[in-house]
Nucleic acid binder design. Structure first.
Length: 506
DNA sequence: ATCGGCTCGCGCAA
DNA sequence: TGCGCGAAGCCGAT
């Protein structure tokens, strides 16, 4: 199968609209101008049709988890994209949905004037909803392009039950992606027809009755603080979920973090990744979630750094975690994260619409958890958990980290979940509480990977492990006491522990 | 400090 | 049909 074809799905199979004025890329998930197969495909179509390319980046404020935190992060990314597309000479319109106009109406209006619409394929959350709605309401030809991860989602035919299962797919086919994947710069050396001259652009926008979101408003939101808050106030979104301080969304910041990771942290990744007080992880998850950076770019940068070439990899497809690449331990274990574990979530959600519910965990886990659903347990209300008011200081610190920074350290996130399983009234409620807390507060919530993490707690992609215990049954058990023994939590607790509550100001 | 047992389903070899 | 093996753990024995 040709690489290009494996990432494209035709959602509305009508003929190309020859009287259309442009090709529209509706950028709902891969919010970047590089390593973007949807942008590449849209530009290919525009060149073929001899029409200009119009890129619209929408963000919906009309869904349950839209908040000051998410809008700020996305708007910061829009300013980066605006600059990139301006330099490339391609028309780009950022648009944050308001009361006045809904996304569906705007998309329909713009689609009627375009030859074909390209949209990001995405297996869950709001981007999936937008995609499915577009398929229902559009008459214009509609292509969905999968720029989610490294291995195209069409390369599996069912949800992989274990990482080991999926790793075989990775090892069998990753060279196809590395040698013939999406381009770093999809708009490089293109026909000038893709650009729209100023005078033509003005009349086009007038006929579309559309201006996008005013630049001045975007600037105010991106600035954050009081200015940002005032700008966001009129939107019908969750204002209690405040923007993360000292955190900037967008491709520019994502690339800076990538440089720091490659040059300073990656070599110590194996030892440091589980140390919450001095973490050597990439911290890129939120930027990956919003598509501000591509996982494929990260992979290329790692392979470049270690001067890897295909002859170093093993011909044997064992699914084993170590040794396949022929690299050191550190890059190999990071590549397993960014490829196997990240893509696993996308492939799972792609094949399983119930990816965020209890029924998505394996049968042995459902059985054992239900068998123990009536075991007595310590209990907290959802509010107590959300407010980080438990007797477990390690857990409270993790919950505070989530609320303040929008992420939880990767090792403590497992403990965070295991304790919610312990404290919620029953395992089904536990899964709902984890999803709700994470969707609301995490910058990378509502992502397939968030669900992988949450449902791993309940046994997904895991096996029965250890003796049968109360509440957990045969599901892998973790405790705060052991975590405290195993990790150096001193720095973490002084940052997020309760006795420092006066550290938060403003 | 390190080691085995706990436990189960998948994919592949036979 | 059997076998090897697996995201991160825990516990008790040495």
């Amino acid at each position: 199968m040709k690489f290009e074809d494996s990432r494209i799905r035709i959602l509305v199979d009508t003929p190309l609209n020859k009287s259309g004025e442009f090709v529209l890329y509706w950028m709902t998930a891969q919010r970047r101008s590089t390593w973007n197969p949807a942008l590449q495909h849209a530009a290919d179509l525009a060149e073929m049709l001899n029409r200009p390319l119009l890129v619209v980046e929408p963000f919906s404020s009309d869904y349950s988890f839209a908040s000051d935190r998410l809008v700020t992060f996305v708007v910061q990314g829009m300013l980066d994209n605006r600059k990139s597309f301006e330099e490339l000479g391609i028309r780009y319109i950022p648009w944050v949905e308001t009361h006045q106009e809904r996304g569906a109406g705007l998309l329909r209006r713009m689609a009627s004037k375009s030859c074909v619409v390209v949209i990001d394929d995405f297996p869950c959350g709001h981007p999936r909803f937008v995609l499915e709605r577009a398929q229902k309401i559009l008459d214009t030809r509609l292509h969905a392009v999968d720029g989610c991860g490294v291995i195209p989602m069409s390369w599996t035919d069912k949800a992989p039950p274990l990482a080991h299962t999926f790793r075989r797919v990775v090892q069998r086919r990753i060279l196809d992606v590395i040698l013939d994947g999406p381009k770093e710069n999809p708009l490089e050396s293109r026909s000038s027809v893709l650009s729209i001259p100023d005078n033509q652009y003005e009349s086009l926008m007038e006929s579309l009755d559309f201006e996008g979101t005013p630049l001045e408003w975007l600037w105010r939101v991106a600035e954050g603080g009081i200015t940002g808050k005032e700008a966001l106030n009129p939107l019908p979104i969750d204002h209690d979920v405040f923007p993360v301080v000292n955190c900037r969304g967008g491709s520019v910041e994502a690339n800076r973090l990538l440089e720091v990771f490659i040059n300073k942290k990656l070599a110590h990744y194996s030892d440091g990744r589980n140390n919450p007080s001095n973490c050597t992880t990439s911290r890129l998850s939120p930027w990956l979630h919003f598509g501000h950076i591509s996982a494929l770019e990260v992979v290329h940068r790692v392979l470049e750094k270690y001067r890897w070439d295909p002859s170093m990899s093993s011909e044997k497809v064992s699914g084993s975690r170590h040794g396949w690449w022929g690299l050191d331990e550190a890059p190999e274990s990071f590549l397993d994260q960014i490829i196997t574990w990240r893509d696993l979530g996308f492939h799972f959600a792609y094949h399983r619409p119930d990816y965020a519910s209890f029924e998505s965990i394996p049968e042995w886990a459902q059985m054992t958890l239900i068998n123990h659903a009536n075991d007595p347990r310590p209990s907290y209300s959802f509010q107590e958990l959300e407010e980080a008011e438990t007797h477990d200081e390690i857990w409270n610190a993790a919950q505070r980290e989530l609320k303040e920074t929008g992420v939880i350290h990767n090792y403590l996130r497992m403990l965070w979940g295991k304790r919610i399983l312990e404290w919620a009234p029953d395992p089904v409620t536990a899964s709902k509480w984890m999803v709700d807390l994470n969707d609301r507060w995490a910058l990378d919530g509502r992502d397939p990977n968030s669900y992988t993490g949450i449902f791993w707690v309940l046994g997904r992609h895991d096996r029965a492990w250890g003796p049968e215990r109360p509440v957990f049954g045969k599901v892998r058990f973790m405790s705060s006491a052991n975590t405290a023994r195993k990790l150096d939590l001193s720095g973490y607790l002084s940052q997020f522990g309760s006795d420092t509550s006066d550290r938060i100001e403003g």
